[in-house]
Design a binder for these strands. Structure first.
Lengths: 127, 127
DNA sequence: TGTTTTTTTGGACTCAATCTAAATTTATTA
DNA sequence: TAATAAATTTAGATTGAGTCCAAAAAAACA
């Protein structure tokens, strides 16, 4: 356990990441506020190992940077196709449902739901 | 409608892509077999416009190149976490189920199911 | 404490994808 | 059909996220 890794873990546990979806770049910036010299490679190294250990989840979006998510509960993501904002959606029975429906012993899933959020609908923004 | 675009469409409609998931690079190589001078940028241009028109779907995998899929039926993807191979899985009621479960008017979904395929299980390969 | 192992670091590098601006092709209209 | 306008193709440059590398530093171990 290094100082750098401890810092990243504390950032994930803090309000800065509660219910948020951060990119590696954002996390690097947050880390540098408290440890200015921390290297980009270190952030990537730790994000990878933390993902492998199951501490965080990586969300590969459609182009652009990946997001990281500290929630432990398996859940899907609602993505507004207009403003690109992401929010969580929990579907408690989904993993079991998917195992039954697919007939495969699924380990985990990644689910993105595309929709137009209420704000964008209200403002009638184009897709 | 240009020759290049017609070629790409015919490749997608052919056996070369039936039930397959091709990367832009693979599609470029297939296109160059019949039109050696075709440019990489043209392939990307057309893939993008065809995706916007809903003719094909783009699958952003976890790192590495995106895949393209010519199937019109909304479906999920089974991804083996060992050998990385992708196959399709159809869950006919899923869109409706997700609308109900999430309480949101979902337009479409992207679903990736992680598992270990039979072959990799049989050969006991590590994750 | 001394030794071994792991991690960090910064910069180089990779790779997919996009951008650019000129040339070409296709579509339009007269 | 010719003239013009609009869209597409092209090669190469560029971007940007992420990885790799080898040396330095830090952590773990005995």
């Amino acid at each position: 356990m290094t100082k750098q890794r401890a810092l990243l873990l504390s950032i994930f546990r803090s309000e800065l990441c509660k219910g948020q979806h951060r990119t590696a770049d954002e996390l690097l910036a947050l880390a540098r506020e408290r440890m200015p010299g921390i290297s980009r490679a270190t952030v990537y190294n730790n994000l990878r190992s933390m993902e492998e250990e199951g501490l965080i989840r990586r969300i590969t979006a459609d182009g652009g940077a990946d997001f990281y998510d500290s929630s432990f509960v398996l859940h899907g993501h609602l993505i507004c196709t207009v403003c690109r904002r992401i929010s969580d959606v929990e579907v408690p029975t989904l993993l079991d449902d998917l195992k039954k429906l697919s007939g495969v012993d699924v380990d985990s899933y990644e689910l993105k739901l595309r929709y137009v959020c209420d704000e964008c609908k209200a403002e009638n923004r184009a897709v």
